[in-house]
Amino acid sequence: MIEFLKRLLRTPQGAIGLFVVVLVLLIVIFGPMLAPNDPEKMAPLARYKAPSLTYLLGTDQYGRDIFSRLLIGARATVVMAVLATIIGTLVGALIGTTSAFLGGRADEFIMRTVDAVMSIPSLLFALLVVNLLGSSTVNALVAVAIAFAPGMARITRSVALSVRKQDYVNAAMARGESSAFIIRREMLPNVVAPIIVEMTIRISFAIMLFATLSFLGLGAQPPAAEWGLMVSEARRYMHLSAGILIWPSVAIAIASIGFNLLGDGLRDALNPRT
């Protein structure tokens, strides 16, 4: 574990990514405790305030403290993105491994179907599912998870197929090991690494997708402190104060960049050849 961390910190992507992601996760956990002001408290007299000691990043159109809202909002945006990606990855990995293991016509059928599903843009897919289930955070989570599953299935399958061709799997088959053993002990440990990398990078997509859904009014609902929703609400007032638009945008970008960098860092760190 220590050695792995060292490898991760060796590349700038890994080091910065890990730092940002840890910071974001800390905010997710401790954000509500750290928030200096009540994020929901409206103050008609303190609207569009510039950053000050009381309001570190200023206030929004209702006089709410932007900094506190960002700290609280991390939960809505980041936790949902991570959860949705994990669920999507698990479903996709299951489909992908099954397909690779079955092989032949069944594999072809599953993969062509996955391709077909992928021809619907993820955002559109998420919009449809949210609309079907009704706009809410949980439904948005399900939508993003479903939208991610086909892509992850594809990646898992190609990784699993390349592992399946390895001689250590052949050796296990020639030895007469059971299919369950081969999948669980020989293949899985070698399939997991690239999938974790891909998943980490996809978390950043999920963050953006969630924000976009909220922006379009199909994710979190006001007065929630979701970052995408904050941008959406700020649009009408951006002429009055750019801060209410800029800060949530920056928060989305930082969280997304962090996971992206961490994914690239993990790719190098998990590669046994480097």
């Binding site: 390895q166 001689d167 250590y168 050796a171 007469g176 440990p189 070698n190 046994p272």
Partner: peptide, 24 residues
């Protein structure tokens, strides 16, 4: 090819890099 056959017939591959699982 049951266990008895497997036990009696073993194979060794060309590249030990590939035939030994790198994570075991």
């Amino acid at each position: 090819m049951d266990t008895a056959y497997r036990k009696d017939v073993q194979i060794i591959f060309q590249h030990p890099d590939a035939s030994l699982n790198p994570r075991h």
